[in-house]
Design a protein around this nucleic acid. Structure first.
Length: 550
RNA sequence: GCGCUCUUAGCUCAGCUGGAUAGAGCAUCUGCCUUCUAAGCAGAGGGUCGCAGGUUCGAAUCCUGCAGAGCGCGCCA
């Protein structure tokens, strides 16, 4: 229907203004949901300058010659909108429209969560986890081959500090007087320390630990933390296809190749970088390897190796993304927290320098504040003051968790009000949507025969038809803009039209789904089926199961 | 100091890349169950879209400046 209106508008324009170059794609037509009409177009307003006429004159010219069987009336409205009214038959026929044939089977790698293995998953990981999972589902919906990937930074200073913190706890508990300092606080460190002690009590002399022992301890602790994280995510319906470890990538020695390649392009040099003003450590005098990322409009050049010659986090990360690229994906997407905002330029710069054609993008998730007792809770991992994801999901439930984590636009700050979600769990959007599904199901359960009947088309019914028709454009928008919240909002709005129709039947029994003999008209039956089908598609993308009964 | 994300109703947030009277949920108030599920519906009140300029037929949306919030700015990860 949209296409029909668009192409008829296009031929009208061509007929009236034959000399002006105009493309079919310039025409926008969208649904209306009130008495103003069924569809609307703003093209007279938008192109009045190009066509060198007043919007209202263009509209009048179009109205004069516009012809389409399904259209009963066209109105010039407001400052120059064209509003279209379609026949009831055409409204019902909206359900039979082919969904957009958009299909792209190229392969996509979506990397998300990728939490540092120094503690359990917490609230902040939750948003990225759900957004990444839902985005993956959207890509799948449009035919892509999707790989969900989880990256583990299992080397570097943070791991040393982590092991040190564990050994500090062991030393404290068993009064060993070891020389380790505490970097990470929090009860979970004690738990890990206990597990490590139990595991290695026989094989390691804790009074005389060597480097190899530390590595073994680290590997054991990391392994159990990663396993625990993956398990927690699995319990919320998030499964990964691939887990990659930084050390495994390092073993492939991609870095030599990368540095050579960048050197050939004169983007690598040896030198020194200024330390930040508040840097506390000892001043480094050695020359290091530096990537000229300012060439790609980064704020400063970036270190590739550290003073001791070992690769920086950045260098390994470039190698990791090169590795992903080499595995043959057509597109790489990363879901990052807002604390990595400043990191995008340098990674893009490196990837762009190495593989100019690479299709790499990042979706950012802003901070989630936890609100409890009407107060924002200050959470800090280093201070050991965290809210474990597992406990959050247990407290509010998987459905609430998934729904609320993608309810808000990913790049806006968000307050998660625990008390509100719990207190109003019967009134929150996800129950509202589920309830509409169950209502539809109750009619289907009760119906006897499917019969032919005439149709009455009040506004509430018409709106539901149009809203269902709109699903196609919403899911496409969510895909193109990489914005998962559009799905959640659409479902809520769709359910609202359903409930509205349902209730209006109280005043007008003509539009009840079932007649007095519990028979259902074929168009009502089709509508309910389509309603459930559309909710199913949306809920499937959100990873939420519909309820048949409530 | 620089960069990024923001500022919309009492609260939490939408606003589809410039369009019609700025929307929804929660909270407050008023109606609606002898008829398919009231976990629902209908309605009311509540707004200078942070402030000030600019761009044009038209700005919450685009540009500039200012104020405020958050995040980031290491040879940490």
């Amino acid at each position: 229907m949209l296409q029909k209106i668009k192409s008829e508008l296009f031929s009208c324009i061509q007929e009236i203004y034959p000399k002006i170059e105009f493309s079919n794609n310039d025409i926008e037509v969208s649904c209306l949901y009130d008495e103003k009409g069924d569809f609307t177009s703003n093209l007279c307003l938008k192109y009045s300058k190009l066509l060198k006429e007043k919007p209202s004159d263009i509209a009048k010219n179009i109205i004069d010659i516009f012809k389409l069987n399904e259209i009963t009336k066209i109105e010039l409205a407001g400052p120059g909108f064209l509003n279209f009214f379609i026949t009831d038959l055409a409204v019902m026929d909206l359900l039979n429209e082919e969904p957009s044939s958009f299909n792209d089977t190229s392969s996509v790698n979506i990397e998300f969560v990728s939490a540092n293995p120094t503690g359990p998953l917490h609230l902040a990981h939750g948003r990225g986890a759900v957004v990444g999972d839902v985005l993956s589902n959207i890509y799948k919906y449009f035919g892509h081959k999707v790989t969900r990937e989880y990256y583990v930074n299992n080397t570097g200073n943070q791991i040393k500090e982590f092991v040190s913190s564990v050994l500090f706890k062991i030393s404290e508990k068993y009064k060993l007087n070891l020389n380790y300092s505490q970097h990470y606080k929090g009860d979970y460190i004690q738990t890990i320390a206990d597990n490590c002690y139990d595991q290695f009590n026989n094989s390691i002399q804790f009074n005389n630990i060597n480097e190899e022992d530390e590595i073994n301890l680290a590997n054991f602790a990391i392994k159990s933390l990663v396993e625990e994280s993956i398990k927690t995510l699995k319990q919320t319906g998030i499964k990964f296809d691939q887990i990659s470890y930084e050390t495994d990538i390092m073993d492939k020695d991609l870095l030599t190749e990368i540095i050579n390649k960048l050197s050939d392009k004169k983007l690598i040099y040896r030198g020194q970088l200024e330390m930040p003003k508040d840097y506390q450590g000892t001043k480094k005098e050695n020359e290091i390897t530096i990537f000229k990322s300012t060439f790609f409009e980064d704020d400063e050049d970036r270190a590739v190796t550290k003073n001791d010659g070992s690769p920086t986090y950045f260098a390994n990360d470039v190698a990791y993304h090169v590795d992903k690229h080499k595995r043959g994906f057509d597109k790489l997407i990363n879901i990052w927290g807002a604390d990595h905002l400043g990191y995008l330029k340098r990674l893009s710069a490196a990837l762009c320098a190495l593989y100019p054609s690479i299709n790499f993008s990042v979706v950012f998730c802003q901070i989630v504040n936890l609100k409890r007792d009407n107060k924002i809770q200050k959470l800090s991992k280093r201070e050991g003051n965290i809210f474990e994801l597992k406990l959050l999901v247990e407290e509010i439930g998987i459905e609430n968790f998934r729904y609320f984590m993608c309810y808000r636009k990913n790049d806006t700050h968000m307050d998660l009000d625990i008390d509100l979600i719990k207190k109003e769990n019967k009134e929150n959007p996800i129950y509202y949507i589920q309830y509409s599904y169950a209502r539809a199901q109750s009619v289907l359960d009760r119906k006897k025969n499917i019969i032919d009947a005439s149709i009455d088309m009040p506004l509430e019914l018409k709106n539901l038809y149009k809203k269902l028709f709109d699903w196609d454009s919403v899911v496409l928008a969510a895909y193109q803009r990489q914005e998962v919240h559009l799905i959640a909002h659409y479902l809520e709005s769709l359910a609202s039209y359903f409930h509205s129709l349902w209730s209006s039947a109280k005043a007008n029994s003509q539009i009840k789904f079932l007649d007095n003999n519990d028979n259902i008209s074929s168009h009502s039956y089709n509508l309910l089926k389509k309603y459930q089908d559309t909710l199913n598609q949306g809920l499937k993308i959100l990873g939420i199961k519909p309820k048949l009964k409530m």
